[in-house]
């Protein structure tokens, strides 16, 4: 409880400093306003923007559009990445070919795919998805492979003496045994997918729907920094929520069962 309180006070202080430096506290006699509101808008303007656009439905709609793209791209990345990672862990030839390719492409920030995606797919949903998949796939593949390789061989031996067939061992022993690694890889993949989608939405304008990233882009075009900052808050919020809703329950279950590091 005390720790939560400290966290809340810290963030309130940050906002207070921001408010003080942008003239929001003028009514209290603190009228510093170091920067023009075009450079750094006060929290009140950002709050007003967020409030208005939530009520008129623009922000909820853009969140919906963005989340849809994210989930589809992420799911495709997982569906391709996890089995390929398993193959790379199992077969040396796959590791030496596909594994090396994944290692190389993982080093490439996914925003680098934007020019090609626009040429190949035009300004469409497919271009956005392509960038998200390229951002997710390789890291998911590599962490799945790593997870499978880290399974202690004694588990498979024990299973075999209990009459488990190779396929049964793969599904009921190797897969669950590698779960902690695979889940942390999926989490990392999610973070990559989120970053990729924001980059793609900022660079690629599509008519099929305005996502959050596109609002940020137009905020820049129209010199509306309050919009830019407001959208940044939403991006942070969505990222945090996804982490808490999607991964925290799974991770805490894993920690409880395995008895691994908990703070």
């Amino acid at each position: 409880m005390k720790r939560v309180l400290i966290t809340i006070i810290f963030f309130l202080l940050l906002i207070l400093v921001w408010a003080a430096l942008t003239g929001d506290l003028a009514f209290m006699g603190i009228d510093i306003a170091l920067w023009s509101p075009y450079v750094l808008p006060p929290p009140s303007t950002v709050g007003q923007y967020l409030w208005d656009n939530t009520l008129n439905g623009k922000i909820p709609l853009s969140m919906l559009i963005t989340l849809r793209r994210l989930l589809i791209g992420y799911a495709i990345g997982l569906i391709i990445g996890v089995p390929l990672g398993m193959l790379a862990a199992r077969f040396r030839s796959v590791n030496d070919t596909l594994g090396m390719l994944a290692l190389g492409l993982q080093a490439l920030p996914s925003v680098c795919w934007v020019p090609l995606a626009c040429i190949w797919f035009g300004q469409t949903e497919a271009a956005l998805l392509f960038v998200v998949i390229m951002g997710t796939l390789w890291s998911v593949l590599l962490s799945t492979q790593n997870g499978m390789k880290n399974v202690p061989p004694i588990y498979a031996r024990a299973a075999r003496t209990m009459g488990s067939t190779p396929l049964h061992t793969l599904v009921f022993v190797t897969l669950p045994a590698s779960a902690p690694f695979v889940v942390s890889g999926m989490k990392q993949g999610w973070a990559f997918a989120w970053r990729s989608l924001m980059a793609a939405e900022i660079y690629v304008s599509v008519v099929s729907g305005f996502g959050i990233g596109q609002y940020l882009h137009y905020g820049r075009e129209l010199q509306r920094m309050y919009q830019v900052i407001g959208v940044m808050f939403i991006i942070i919020l969505v990222g945090l929520l996804a982490d808490k809703i999607l991964f925290s329950p799974v991770e805490s279950w894993l920690h409880r069962r395995w008895g691994t590091g908990k703070e």
Binding site: R157, R160, T161, R257
Partner: peptide, 19 residues
């Protein structure tokens, strides 16, 4: 390997994902 012979190892080799 077969079900007529069960083996116990030096390490317990129990599966941590099961109770």
């Amino acid at each position: 390997p077969g079900r007529d012979r069960m083996m116990m190892f030096q390490e317990h080799a129990l599966f941590p994902w099961l109770d």
